[in-house]
Amino acid sequence: MTDMAVKPAPAPARSAPAPRPRRRPGGWAIVRAALRVLATLAILFFVLFPILWMALTAFKPARDAFSTAVVFAPTLDNFAAILGGASDLTGALVNSVLIAVATTIVSIPLALLAAYAFSRYRFPGHRGMLLAIVATQFIPGVAIALPFLTLFRSLGLIDTHLALVVVNLSLVVPYITWLLKGFVDGLPIEIEEAARLDGCGQVSLLWRVITPLAAPGIFVAAVFSFLLSWNEFLFPTFLARTDASTLPVALMTLVLPEGVAWGQMAAAGLLVMAPMLIMALLVRKHFAEGMTMGAVK
């Protein structure tokens, strides 16, 4: 009360034009904003152009494949050629799908169980095993592919789906275990405690409580698992060159003695990348932390 009385009358301040704390966007600010927009557009160009160019080339008729023309009569010839036509890649496409699906179906339950153990229990070797899981990502592919090359040769498993699913586990299981651990860490433990008090056993707890709660995480893990096996190139290069070869390796068959069939390559490329681009957009919020195994949150 007394404070108010002491305060000087605000009247003079009001009549005078109040000094604005922020100046109106003047010359500098406009230049800076414009530069920022230009730089952002340059980033968009850098990121998107190779993708758009491949998509465009895929629909170009043969005579335009090498031109930089943006206007042309679109055709599906290239897709016809790789899907049942002269340079058929249908087999590789089917292989890619089968192997990625099988890898995902096998990996998810293993990884979810392990993630749950890492998240909910402390036990001797906890930290060591977690570190080991991160460390597996640093193993060079050749050191895994070479021994499996000789092993699968003697077992008669070279160039089979099974061979690729097995080696893919080395990439996928550690990776999604780490990913799922993050998700299980985020689940409130109270629900589990309540379920246990209600007499829920461990198996039904995992199946009826954890799995539905972790469903969004399982979805993200499935997407990453699919993406990793789909894009894998080194393993099929060593272990499945023909019968079980996947799409990225089968692209090599479009490199012909007379040159690369770029139109068909672009069409096949679109087939390889389009599903992954969609999947990446679906899980984009988890990409940065996903790729670094939780180092960056």
Binding site: L44, V47, L48, P50, I51, W53, M54, T57, L227, W230, N231, F233, L247, P248, V249, L251, V260, W262, M265, A266, G269, V272, M273, M276, L277, M279, A280, L281, R284, F287, M291
Partner: peptide, 21 residues
Amino acid sequence: ALLILPFAVAPALKGFSWRFM
């Protein structure tokens, strides 16, 4: 939102794409 797209492209395909361009 679009930044992650290039990373999702198979590395083998990246090679072909840049070789073409």
